[in-house]
C-alpha cells in the first residue's frame, strides 16, 4: 500500500511537528509512506475566497506530485475536503483521505501507540465533521458515531470530553478570520470558554487551522489550556 503524506502549506511551515507525528504514526502502523517533495498547498485559500478560477497552476502542481499513489493522506480536514470536492482530477478526488478517516476506515486500527494521561476537549472541525462525515452531526436525526472519538478511546490514560455545543464552529473560516475579525474572534473566545467550563487540559482536533486560531486566542488570554493535533496524541509514546 503506497501512501503519500500530504502536508498542507501552513503545517509544513508552522506546525512541522504535526507532519512528523503523522509520518511516524503511519509508519508505526505499517504504511509505506512517501513525502512528495516540493508539495505546497491544496488550493483551498484561493477557492474559498472565490478565486478557484485562478487555481489551475496549483491544481496541476498537486496532481503532478500526487499521481501514482493508492492513498493520499493528510492531517487537515478542510484541505482534504477541498481536494475531495474541487480538485479537477477524479483520481486525486477519490484517493484523498483525512488521516483519522484513513486510520478508522482503511487501516481499521484496533490499537495505537499513544499514551496520554490527560483530560482533553475534542474540537470537531466543521469541514471534517460536516464535510467529510467524520462524526454524526447535532443537527441531524441519525445514529451517533465519532471517528475521532473511536481513535481517542484507543489512547491509554486519556479522557475526552465534548463542550456544551458539541459541534459549533470555532470561527477560523480561512480568510474569514481576518475579513470578519470581530465575529471570528468572538466565536473562538466562546468556543474556548466552553472548553474551560468542562475543565480540559488540552483542546484536541484534526484540523490544525482551527487549532491555530484557538491557540492565538488562548495565548493572548494567557490560558493554561494547550492545543494538540489528534495525531500528536495517537503517536505520543
Amino acid at each position: 500500500m503506497k501512501v503519500a503524506l500530504f502536508v498542507p502549506c501552513y503545517i509544513d511551515q508552522f506546525y512541522p511537528h504535526v507532519a512528523k507525528a503523522s509520518l511516524e504514526l503511519l509508519e508505526k502502523l505499517g504504511c509505506d509512506v512517501e513525502i512528495p517533495m516540493g508539495q505546497t498547498c491544496c488550493g483551498q485559500p484561493m477557492a474559498n475566497s472565490g478565486f478557484s478560477h485562478i487555481n489551475q497552476g496549483v491544481d496541476q502542481h498537486f496532481e503532478k506530485l500526487f499521481t501514482g499513489y493508492d492513498y493520499i493522506v493528510g492531517p487537515s480536514g478542510s484541505c482534504i475536503l477541498h481536494l475531495k470536492e474541487h480538485h479537477p482530477n477524479l483520481k486525486i478526488r477519490s484517493s484523498v483521505f483525512e488521516i483519522c478517516e484513513f486510520l478508522v476506515d482503511v487501516l481499521q486500527v484496533k490499537s495505537v501507540p499513544g499514551k496520554f494521561p490527560h483530560t482533553v476537549g475534542l474540537h470537531q472541525s466543521c469541514h471534517g465533521q460536516r464535510g467529510l462525515g467524520l462524526s454524526s452531526m447535532s443537527e441531524r436525526n441519525l445514529p451517533h458515531f465519532s471517528k475521532l472519538g473511536t481513535l481517542l478511546d484507543l489512547v491509554e490514560g486519556l479522557t475526552w470530553k465534548l463542550p456544551a455545543k458539541v459541534d459549533e464552529c470555532c470561527g477560523f473560516g480561512g480568510t474569514f478570520c481576518v475579513t470578519e475579525e470581530a465575529v471570528s474572534v468572538k466565536m473562538g473566545q466562546d468556543r474556548i470558554q466552553e472548553h474551560e467550563e468542562i475543565e480540559v487540559e488540552y483542546i484536541v482536533g484534526a484540523d490544525t487551522s482551527c487549532l491555530m486560531h484557538l491557540d492565538g486566542i488562548l495565548k493572548r488570554k494567557g490560558s493554561k489550556i494547550q492545543i494538540k493535533h489528534i495525531v500528536e496524541i495517537l503517536n505520543h509514546a
Binding site: 502536508v7 503545517i11 509544513d12 511551515q13 508552522f14 506546525y15 512541522p16 511537528h17 507532519a19 512528523k20 509520518l23 513525502i35 517533495m37 516540493g38 508539495q39 478570520c177 481576518v178 475579513t179 475579525e181 474572534v185 473562538g188 491555530m212 486560531h213 491557540d215 492565538g216 486566542i217 495565548k219 493572548r220
Partner: peptide, 20 residues
C-alpha cells in the same frame, strides 16, 4: 487583523520538508 486579538503562531526553525 489576526494580531488585534490573537497571538501569531510560533515560528519553528525549519519547515517539515527541510527537516525531512
Amino acid at each position: 487583523p489576526w494580531y488585534w486579538q490573537r497571538e501569531m503562531p510560533e515560528a519553528p526553525k525549519e519547515s517539515f520538508q527541510e527537516w525531512y
